[in-house]
Design a protein around this nucleic acid. Structure first.
Lengths: 311, 311
DNA sequence: AAAATGTTTTTTCACGATAAAAGACATTAC
DNA sequence: GTAATGTCTTTTATCGTGAAAAAACATTTT
């Protein structure tokens, strides 16, 4: 199968939405920049749009012939990259239970079950290893360290260290820095979400990530910025499986963020420290409460074979 | 070529040294544990030892027939894993000059120049990326961020944060913890090295790593422990290219370590903090002084093609 | 029966091959 | 002459394959 053309399909779908909005298409290089793909892919997209009668295309003249219909789009599941597919599949197994600490991870089995080559699985595991949840035995298998309370505590310890430092650096930024405008925009978004919380509470996780990434960026330290990837990954999946009291939790978090934002705007280091600590403390509580100690197999079908096997 | 048998060759050489020392060989499983390889590899080793007349081997009876000669050993360069070969080769290019920040890294070219498959190079780059020196453009090439002053500052910022915390945790460890004995042993090694510094100054880097790893382990935080890999990698190569005043630098560092050890043994948090800061400060100075700002191509042969190409 | 050796199966590691996607070069249009 | 389009080349992403190494199973020895 060699390589799927998901880049093309995903860009095609995004291009359709663009077409729907603007009713016109720019030049090939411009479209490439807009979609984040090369001209080669842009031209494939335009070819198909011409074939399916969406546009008339002759050199620089691109005329929109009709509005995109649902059936013009590629199915969403065909637009995911292999890495995304593998990650989702792996995380589902990890969180579905039956994945106890110390178990072995079998590359070949994982590859077969997901239906991909071993190379892709290997590369995924190497990339994933920086999250601290798995570990490689030299010349041998991977070992699952498990999504345990210890993991959550170690993660939050670093997070708190990094965020306190980043927040302090943020507050010390000169007033003419562009971040203050970014912060203002995020504040507005927080207020809008707060007033609409009943219907839009599930939009918080995305806003949460943008907010914290903005703060971490003020550290101007690549290791701090990169570490947020670990936090983001954990929270991403955490939000998916822990839906209990989601609305209420998010409501509280928004208020904490607003207090945090106000503290940053005051540029008073002591106030920033207090607001940051308060928010981090409740974030830690939320995460910890979703990891019962002695996390066991939740499903009873945990057999001795499969991706995760007993050591 | 599929896969080299470097694991076997390396284990064979180590087994020869063992044979030379003990004049006998234990059972197959025991030997496997000792050498850190599987029984399959152990049996291959024994087979060759029998063939080359080193031992007589009949089931459990392994009789040593003669002492290993230099020509019995596999050449050292055949015992390196592919990952090691690629890393060394990559770092040489990186440090040899001509590798400016922003340059592209070409997987195919790198693979061809080193004489290995692309998969191995890809996996190396993914693993290496956590060191913060390179960055991947989605669906495209890697970008070299460069071994710059900024990098060194960001690295040491985290290092100092982590080590101060680890040192504090270390000092707070109960007296019956096994680490105190480890610390005592390291202290002795430091004193021995200090008295022999004229001839053995180049042994310091290895001792340095063991000392700092012991301290970091007291944090009981996998992210802190893992981060030391980044520091160790940088210092490893740093020691190789910056030989200026090596002896004097190491002499100073040993004294700082001894003061640091004394502070830890006092278990007085304030003293630990002072000693730790002092050592970290001079470690940072040493690193920074070896990275001239505006680090340019040192070699004149930097062409527009090759592993690192101008963006 | 515990622990070794002997044998077979499975998994990891590394490669070359191939389609997708990016990038470079040549040509044309404004 | 700048910026687009048209064409060709190179690189990246992914797979299947095969040897090295690990692991599992069977048999023998003490």
């Amino acid at each position: 199968m060699s390589k799927s053309n998901n880049v093309y399909k995903d860009a095609f779908n995004r291009c359709l939405r663009l077409l729907d909005e603007t009713q016109s298409l720019p030049s090939e290089p411009e479209l490439g920049t807009l979609l984040g793909v090369s001209r080669t892919t842009v031209r494939s997209i335009l070819s198909r749009m011409e074939e399916t009668g969406l546009i008339a295309w002759n050199k620089r003249n691109k005329t929109v012939l009709r509005t995109p219909r649902p059936e013009d789009f590629f199915p969403e599941e065909e637009t995911d990259s292999l890495a995304e597919i593998i990650e989702r599949s792996f995380m589902r197994r990890l969180l579905a239970g039956g994945a106890e600490a110390g178990m072995q991870i079998n590359e070949l089995e994982l590859a077969r079950e997901i239906g991909v080559g071993t190379t892709s699985v290997r590369e995924f595991l190497i990339r994933f290893s920086r999250f601290g949840l798995i570990e490689k035995r030299r010349n041998s298998h991977w070992v699952l360290k498990g999504f345990t309370r210890a993991f959550a505590l170690e993660l939050t310890e670093i997070r708190e260290m990094f965020e306190l430092r980043s927040a302090a650096a943020f507050a010390a930024l000169p007033m003419d820095s562009a971040v203050w405008a970014d912060l203002d925009r995020l504040e507005v978004e927080h207020r809008q979400l707060a007033s609409d919380i009943a219907t839009r509470f599930n939009e918080f996780s995305e806003l949460d990530e943008r907010f914290h990434r903005l703060i971490h960026r003020a550290s101007h330290n690549r290791f701090i910025v990169d570490f947020y990837d670990v936090i983001a990954m954990i929270f991403h999946y955490h939000y998916q499986w822990n839906k209990a009291e989601e609305r209420q939790r998010n409501e509280v978090a928004i208020q904490e963020h607003l207090a945090y934002i106000a503290a940053l705007k005051s540029r008073d280091p002591a106030k920033v420290d207090v607001a940051c600590r308060k928010h981090l403390k409740s974030a830690r509580q939320t995460l910890l409460s979703s990891i019962p100690e002695g996390r066991q197999a939740l499903a009873a079908d945990s057999t001795l074979t499969g991706t995760f096997a007993r050591a």
